[in-house]
Amino acid sequence: MSKILVCIKRVVDYNVRIRVKPDGSGVITDNVKMGINPFDEIALEEALRLKERGVASEVVVVSIGPAETQQQLRTALAMGADRALLVEHAYAIEPLTAARVFLKLVEKEAPLLVITGKQAIDDDNGQTGQMLAALWDRPQACFASKVEINGNIAKVTREVDAGLETLELDLPAVITTDLRLNEPRYVKLPEIMKAKKKPLETLTLDALGITASKQFNVTKVTPPPVKQKGVMVKDVTELVATLKQMGSL
């Protein structure tokens, strides 16, 4: 039977309103609530459902990040992943480095499928899955809204700008998830207790023989331009008049 590898990222919780540091060196992340990137949570849920359907026998959840990322991996284990791997690294890395790290884990674990989110909601890059697929020389299906596995073939429906597109992939392959693929389950307390006993292995970039590459140097981070406060109108007549006055109608 086969294995599914799920790549997750620890990010600022999606409900947090981000503020830029006054000195322009980044965004404020101290004492901010952290969580699993929502798209990655969907990826994990899909892997768990595939396992429940008997398509896979094991779900391995992997991440790259600071030691605190163990919290998110424990949550993933509580959701139902069988074991976890953390490649500990204190600093942000570029997606190409992340893909190289995940390739090492793929080579180690030989999964049938890798599932990850289509993008992380912190840097909004949306690259790691595709890069991993390229380095691994395997098919990719991005922005998945439906996944069917039949033997060694996956049929994946993707949300694209023109509507929905279906691809057929020879496995192994990489799938990145979109919002409507599923709704992740809630974690129950007994599962959290059980998850504490599940294996969580820690590795380092060094141990994997990877050096973080750096192509993009962030010189500063700035807040977006502030929009001028708009006007409130009392009724439809005033709305139409205002629109005409602004030249919008």
Binding site: I18, V27, I121, D124, Q215, N217, V218, T219, P224
Partner: peptide
Amino acid sequence: PIYAGNALVHIDADPAK
């Protein structure tokens, strides 16, 4: 943009690549 456009990053890319 990052964080859904709530921050903008200014980037210098390595010209050798």
